[in-house]
Amino acid sequence: MATGHNLAYASFTIYQDTEPPEFWTNYFGVSPSRAGVKGQFRPMPSGAMSSTPWRQGIWSFSSADAVISDDLTPHLRYLIERLQLPRVDLGGLIARTGGSMRFFCYWDNESGDRVTDVPEDIRTMMEAMGGTVEVDEYR
């Protein structure tokens, strides 16, 4: 089934209101795919500004435009490599800011026969840093 887009992608996202997005950009050494500060209006894909502001601060880095695969593992490994995860101090930084972090995984399963492939070592790594792995399946 040719869809013109990946049937899977992943993003690493931090939610917190203490540090500005630039803090996380400097920390990871990569520009975010999305970032915003609580209370600021969100830019829409059209270039217009949304009528509702961010409900909380966000910094997110996605594999969607960098990895061509319908499986999650290459997307997650890409994020781990680019963000140099795991990081010993990351869990403490997240705790200090009162924030949370997660791998968000998009999983297109319209056919109903695809099985997600999040490796156990990645789940274990995220849990050890205080984060989660979430798969959002679309049918």
Rank of each mutant, 00 (worst) to 15 (best):
G4C: 03
N6D: 12
L7G: 11
L7P: 01
Y9R: 12
S11D: 14
F12P: 07
T13I: 10
P20W: 05
P20F: 02
T25Y: 08
N26M: 09
F28A: 08
G29C: 05
V30A: 04
P32F: 05
R34G: 00
R34I: 05
R34A: 12
R34H: 13
G36T: 00
M44N: 15
P45M: 06
G47I: 04
A48F: 03
T52I: 08
P53V: 06
R55S: 11
Q56A: 13
F61G: 03
A64K: 14
I68G: 00
D71Q: 14
L72G: 05
L72C: 01
R77N: 06
Y78F: 12
Y78P: 02
L83G: 05
Q84H: 12
L85P: 08
L85K: 07
G91M: 01
I94H: 07
T97D: 15
G98W: 03
G99N: 06
M101R: 10
M101N: 10
R102E: 11
R102A: 14
F104V: 00
C105N: 02
Y106D: 01
N109R: 02
E110W: 05
S111Q: 06
R114K: 13
T116E: 12
V118Q: 10
P119T: 03
E120C: 09
M129I: 10
G130Y: 14
T132M: 14
E134L: 12
E134Q: 07
V135W: 06
D136K: 14
D136G: 07
E137H: 00
